[in-house]
């Protein structure tokens, strides 16, 4: 680690970080470039040795690996294992890396060969059931969101560099939504997954009059049985609720449970 910064007189190492992308839209990485005002500070905090969205050079000498995307091919599993060998800290960046993300929507079809044909036609391509990083390697830290919230990543990276503990909110999105004094989407007759979804996005969607789609996955101890009651009472069909819960993969276990009760294939 190169040392050229101090905090209260104590030298602070500037870790080498690399960014990788598996199956994803690279939108999370783009988020990091999104705010020029803090970009230079970010770059002075860490030494970026690989970042396809922002530089040509690519080095394999890194300590922290930010991996965006989910696993849909065998070669991605192998790449990921190599990254794990090299990196001291592997960070799953964004909901694809954490839960499979939008990509895992294809997992709801039993016949993956049919999916492949529908999407790629006769083009020869290998694609398997979508997995999050944690299905293949040990992940040290997860940063949720589709996309991630830049401010949150900056806060987490600062904590990593200073060796502080990293906390994710334990409460659901409603807490942040109320602090922004939004009108509750349920009052407008719209569904919202805010009551069960992990906060941290500052109620991004409800603040723009859109119900939460649960991109950050379940809050710890999410009360999903009460969510079902809330939706049913308001005449929101179970199908619509499941559609939403399925979108990013964070609620996969619960969705499987509900489908099993209904006697549907998982």
């Amino acid at each position: 680690m190169t040392t050229n910064k101090t905090f209260l007189g104590v030298p602070v190492a500037r870790p080498k970080v690399a960014f990788f992308e598996l199956s994803s839209c690279e939108g999370c990485q783009l988020q990091l470039l999104n705010n020029e005002a803090t970009l230079l500070d970010f770059l002075s905090l860490v030494e970026v040795v690989r970042f396809r969205e922002g530089m040509k050079e690519a080095s394999d000498d890194y300590e922290i690996a930010f991996v965006e995307g989910s696993i849909t091919r065998r070669d991605e599993e192998e790449r990921l294992r190599v990254i794990r060998e090299q990196a001291k800290v592997v960070v799953a960046l964004g909901s694809c890396a954490c839960f499979g993300g939008v990509n895992q929507l294809k997992n709801r079809f039993n016949d993956l060969e049919w999916v492949k044909k529908e999407v790629y036609g006769s083009f020869p391509i290998e694609t398997q059931k979508v997995k999050p990083l944690s299905a293949v390697i040990k992940v040290d830290l997860e940063i949720y969101g589709c996309p991630i919230k830049k401010e949150e990543v900056e806060r987490i990276v600062t904590a990593l560099v200073l060796g502080e503990q990293i906390h994710h909110p334990q409460y659901p999105v409603c807490m942040e939504c109320k602090a922004r004094e939004n009108i509750c989407l349920f009052d407008l007759g719209e569904p919202c997954l805010g009551p069960v979804t992990r906060a941290g996005c500052d109620a991004w969607c409800p603040s723009n009059r859109l119900g939460c789609w649960g991109c950050r996955g379940p809050a710890p101890e999410a009360n999903l049985s009460q969510l079902q009651i809330i939706m049913a009472e308001r005449g929101i069909s179970q199908e619509r609720m499941i559609d939403r819960l399925e979108c990013f993969g964070g609620f996969a276990a619960f969705v499987a449970e509900v489908k099993e009760k209904k006697g549907e294939p998982k």
């Binding site: 409460y171 659901p172 807490m175 805010g194 009551p195 009360n223």
Partner: peptide, 13 residues
């Protein structure tokens, strides 16, 4: 408690 979503809405308002 079974109903409660532990969402903090009550305290916020």
């Amino acid at each position: 408690g079974q109903k409660c979503l532990s969402c903090g809405t009550c305290a916020q308002v």
